[in-house]
């Protein structure tokens, strides 16, 4: 086997044409924490051509139970810098762009992006992100809290805005309880949906997948 064979196992699943689509895709990952770090790693391993990572945080001890790209030696360092280093080690063919900033009303989405992963940890930033996406952009939203999580795909300009769906929901005070397996499960669903979306077959368009992480139930909620 040589490096060119690195995608053999997944090409056997979805074919060469789909692999080429992935290699031509540009995805923005907003938030590189519990969900975003795992999503970034999975898309990097899958060979998505270009990832733009957005975050402004530094690695801290409470991150290490679930944020898969970081380790003890990274404490206090820029998450994006560490994420970039780790992702390049995993797959040097993927182009990694870094936007070290908060997502606020001035956020500008790079023009080449067609699919966005909302891996943020608060509603205000989520709504700013969505508001600043161009029409037709696909937004794959994920959220997690304690023993529950959800994933949905929305298309800007066509779907109900996330801000409308979540109107009236308030950010919980204090730290949000979350563990490593839960974050990995929701991130796995998000990465799967991002790949589906890039390949033109979103499975959760205007449809929440709601995951009970404690009792392992799955529900759908159409919006």
């Amino acid at each position: 086997m040589v490096m060119a064979d690195r995608y053999n196992r997944q090409i056997a699943l979805w074919g060469k044409e789909s692999q080429e689509k992935l290699e031509g895709a540009a995805v923005l990952i907003a938030g590189v924490g519990g969900l975003g770090a795992a999503v970034a790693e999975l898309l990097t391993r899958a060979g998505v051509g270009q990832l733009t990572l957005v975050d402004h945080g530094r690695v801290d001890w409470p991150d290490l139970n679930r944020q898969l790209l970081y380790c003890e030696a990274d404490i206090g360092r820029s998450k994006l810098q560490i994420a970039e280093r780790q992702l390049r080690r995993i797959n040097s063919r993927v182009k990694i762009n870094l936007l070290e900033q908060q997502i606020d009303p001035s956020f500008i989405c790079p023009t080449e992006i067609s699919t966005v992963a909302d891996c943020l940890d608060n509603y205000v930033s989520r709504f700013h992100l969505e508001a600043n996406l161009p029409d037709e952009t696909y937004l794959v939203h994920g959220g997690i809290e304690a023993n529950q999580g959800q994933v949905i795909t929305l298309q800007k300009g066509t779907s109900q805005p996330l801000a409308d769906i979540f109107t009236g929901v308030q950010q919980p005070r204090g730290e949000i309880p979350v563990n490593g397996p839960g974050a990995a499960i929701i991130a796995g669903y998000m990465a799967n949906e991002l790949l589906n979306t890039i390949l033109g077959k979103p499975q959760l368009l205007d449809r929440f997948l709601i995951v009970g992480l404690g009792d392992l139930h799955l529900d759908f909620l159409d919006v």
Partner: peptide, 25 residues
């Protein structure tokens, strides 16, 4: 919140959902 909040009328055939989403990421 985009209808009539708690005054939103419900009728035969309606589907009402109570959903507390996860806020973290």
């Amino acid at each position: 919140h985009h209808l009539k909040k708690l005054q939103t009328p419900v009728k035969d055939g309606d589907v009402v959902a109570f959903f507390p989403p996860g806020a973290g990421g």
